[in-house]
Design a protein around this nucleic acid. Structure first.
Lengths: 255, 255
DNA sequence: GTCCATATTCTTGTATGCAAGAATTTTTCG
DNA sequence: CGAAAAATTCTTGCATACAAGAATATGGAC
């Protein structure tokens, strides 16, 4: 029955795909499985709405169902998957409404981070954050989008860390997952990157001056502006896709 | 006599122990196990610092290791447990520092909720929240502490729901877990309950007036006051406990 | 040919087995 | 008698087996 290649295309993929680790120690599978599966979702390799077949994932990831199921549970809690009992888990939809909801929450959280961070910002910390800012600009000049995203995220993260509030950092990281996913889903250079760089510099200035209210306000608005731009880009792209796409049988109506 | 034993000693024990649910349908074990274990932690039946032995928990909860392990993973993500690879999970310490960190975050989140809710508050919604407020007062007059906590939480939750932002509600629920745990750990009537009731009424007034800025500020301060009082009570009690006894943390508890 | 009932297959939920690493006890040597 | 080392036991991490429910295919009646 199991003739070569054709019957099990997954098995072929299996051999090429990155196995967990050759020198796998014992307690490492859960964490790495979560990370790899999360990456598949955040980067869009697993598209929103995709059904997750556990057995298939086991083959893809080269592990048994136990760590896969644990990872699914974890990512469901993080809001990246949706689960219904006795049904396959599904990659949660990335609707614009959720990103709009994110705007208020993330901007508020980062505003708080700026407020707390400004009160504790040493010269060294400000210099470090400034370094991340310049790193981001460097990636921009090189036209390296992933590096740009990464440095931008590090810039924000460092400010949240500087706030010195572990609960705040915890919440921020949960939110950052969804923000990352939204960014990847557009995979576009922010139209307002020039403005963003200016805003970063103003945030740095407020932090350096220890002006909590100003840092808070500027971070809040910077985040709001950035995510709003993202929403606009997604809406644009969504409309473009709707125009060009083949006619869908069921729910086709015109605005 | 329990002579045979060797083959399946657990099976015999399982029959007597409280089963999760007689009419157990298939997909229900994970959720109920999480809920029961979480309850043990939040209420303090599993004390901070207690080590969780999976096999023991299986016996106590009457399920196999799989759902128990899933529940442990879930609660670890929620911050109620701490896990180290190849070691038993431990109920996370409820240190005052974390509650102090919670103050900034929860007050900010609820402040945002108040702001958004005020803009959307219908008369009906305000009336419903007012009802919850009176329910809380009723429980106070009856000296029913759990009911008081519950109604208080419902009051706050309803406002967050009213904000109409699912991400905000998600974050609030995660934070509320930790707040609940802190409250249970004191298990005391708030000293400032009278003030709290006044503040609730002022919040209601701001919501009814649709004054977003005022509702936001009042909620923020109300939450900050309440949690600060909780911290004060815990510090007081911690000092009292340190004076009188040398407690021994243990993993054993009684059903 | 279509629709409904039934049977088969597939997928998830739960339990259990086995091995690696940690904890504990026992043994051995100074 | 004490301490280090070895062995036993215990606990977790991962894999797999089995069962219940859902999805899909098959067959029959109209």
């Amino acid at each position: 029955m199991d003739s070569p290649a054709d019957t099990t295309p997954l098995a072929a993929l299996l051999a090429q795909l990155p196995q967990p680790e050759p020198g796998r120690r014992k307690g490492a599978l859960h964490g790495s499985t979560v990370a790899r599966l999360r990456n598949l979702i955040v980067t869009g390799a697993l598209a929103p709405g995709a059904k997750l077949n556990e057995r298939e994932l086991c083959l893809q990831l080269g592990v048994s169902r136990t760590p896969v199921r644990e990872a699914i549970k974890t990512l469901t809690q993080d809001g990246l998957l949706r689960a219904m009992p006795n049904h396959s888990s599904v990659v949660s939809e990335l609707d614009v409404g959720e990103i709009e909801a994110l705007i208020d929450v993330v901007s508020t959280i980062e505003g708080l981070a700026g407020e707390l961070a400004a009160a504790r910002a040493s010269d060294e910390a400000v210099a470090e954050i400034g370094m991340l800012h310049y790193k981001m600009m460097l990636h921009h000049t090189r036209d390296e989008l992933p590096g740009y995203f990464e440095a931008n995220k590090a810039f924000h993260r460092r400010i949240v860390e500087l706030a010195g509030n572990p609960v705040l950092l915890w919440v921020w990281e949960l939110l950052a997952l969804r923000v990352d996913r939204a960014r990847y889903s557009s995979n576009l250079w922010p139209k307002r990157w020039k403005m963003a760089i200016q805003e970063h510099e103003q945030i740095l200035a407020a932090l350096a001056a220890g002006d909590a209210a100003l840092a808070s306000q500027r971070l809040r608005e910077h985040v709001r502006n950035g995510l709003s731009g993202l929403v606009a880009a997604l809406k644009e792209r969504g409309e473009a896709a709707a125009r060009t796409e083949a006619p869908t049988p069921s729910s086709s109506f015109r605005p």
